[in-house]
Nucleic acid binder design. Sequence first.
DNA 1: ATGCTGTGTTAATGATTTCTTAATGTTGAT
DNA 2: ATCAACATTAAGAAATCATTAACACAGCAT
Lengths: 232, 232
Amino acid sequence: MIFKVLVVDDEKDIVDLLKYNLEKEKDFEVITAGDGKSALALAVTEKPDLIILDIMMPELNGFDVCKKLKSGVITSKIPVIFLTAKENEIDEIIGLELGADDYIQKPISPRKVIARVKSVIRRVYAEKEKTVKTDEYIKFKNLEVDSIAHCVKIDNEDVFFPKKEFQLLRFLLSNRGKVLSREILLNEIWGENIFVVDRTIDVHVAKVREKLGVYSDYIETIKGLGYRFHAD
Amino acid sequence: MIFKVLVVDDEKDIVDLLKYNLEKEKDFEVITAGDGKSALALAVTEKPDLIILDIMMPELNGFDVCKKLKSGVITSKIPVIFLTAKENEIDEIIGLELGADDYIQKPISPRKVIARVKSVIRRVYAEKEKTVKTDEYIKFKNLEVDSIAHCVKIDNEDVFFPKKEFQLLRFLLSNRGKVLSREILLNEIWGENIFVVDRTIDVHVAKVREKLGVYSDYIETIKGLGYRFHAD
DNA sequence: ATGCTGTGTTAATGATTTCTTAATGTTGAT
DNA sequence: ATCAACATTAAGAAATCATTAACACAGCAT
């Protein structure tokens, strides 16, 4: 599953840093806002799976934004991670009982952020991940898919896969042996609110097959149901 | 499971557009209303699983309808998706905290609507859908039927079954020992609203028997009543 | 800005599989 | 022996998918 993260901070450097590091992982799609107002708007229209929210912002500060989020029907369930600069803001987060799920103290360490984000997401979306999964590193016979390095090795030969094809291959491979319907593929790879035509999947499957060479037949088509990566 | 959707809009074009596109998917039954008053009446009598509600309507507008729905005992749990024409109506939806589950902005894109509807339904009725009568995995003697992998093993040998044949075998097998009438088979495998001739079942049974090899005799014909998978 | 390249999406076409039907043959109960 | 119910077969219809090519768009360099 691809998680959509909304990063909110008025300091562009921090937004960019977080965006870059989160997107380097293949599990996240990042949208950003530079102030509280647009953050609220995006929260409603984009329905992110997680919001990283700076506290110190002009006009609407992080506390205000969080309060509004938690009172809105559509947005109340979205987990929030606060970015704090000062020690005493942490006390405030706890004191105000804003429903924050975690906080990260500045200065920001990318690794720490990703760890926190993953931890919150695991906690909140635990059930979702049970039926289908996406592994960070998979090796099947002589086919390696490494999400961290974003590389695919076929018989020890590097083959480049663009993002969507990479995600598709990774997802099929992580769920080897299971039939994956187009609906599931769309939800997991494209996301719930992205609208593409079913045929788009076919085209990507074709491209992936082409690149897989001798392994291409491992991606099986189950007519009327979906696709399956052969179990063994 | 077929979901009943109530579409409410005073513009007939939009109602028709939504009705047509939702019914094209086989998962939805659509009823419609042209104004708020009849929408409320239908919500009570028909108990739809979801309501798509236009905001701008003469007399009772969408907000009023939603408010009444949410205060009614029978209708308060029905998820509502708003149709909005203007940007500021979105703010109002959020501001009023009407308990809307989502909204769709006009102009309407059919694909988007279907995606939203499915998304809301998945969210709200997540547990309901899990109650599938057929088992995910069945093993009888050396005959295995695995629905997740969509594969059938006969004496440890993979045998491919196309969709309908697979469903038929699975249904017969998970109701082993029971006589299943053609009517039941049609309802369970083909669906309530699909019309096919009785002989079609026979043909599928024949195909399944053929593939079952040594197990073919386990599917018994009970003349005048239906079919039964032998109990042991 | 302009053009270039890579990626992603769609639509059109044709191929293939799967499903359905109709026609005809078979069975078994009365 | 008769007749309704079922089996079998083959043909065509319908659904589904593969493939191709065109387009859109973003990022990047010029």
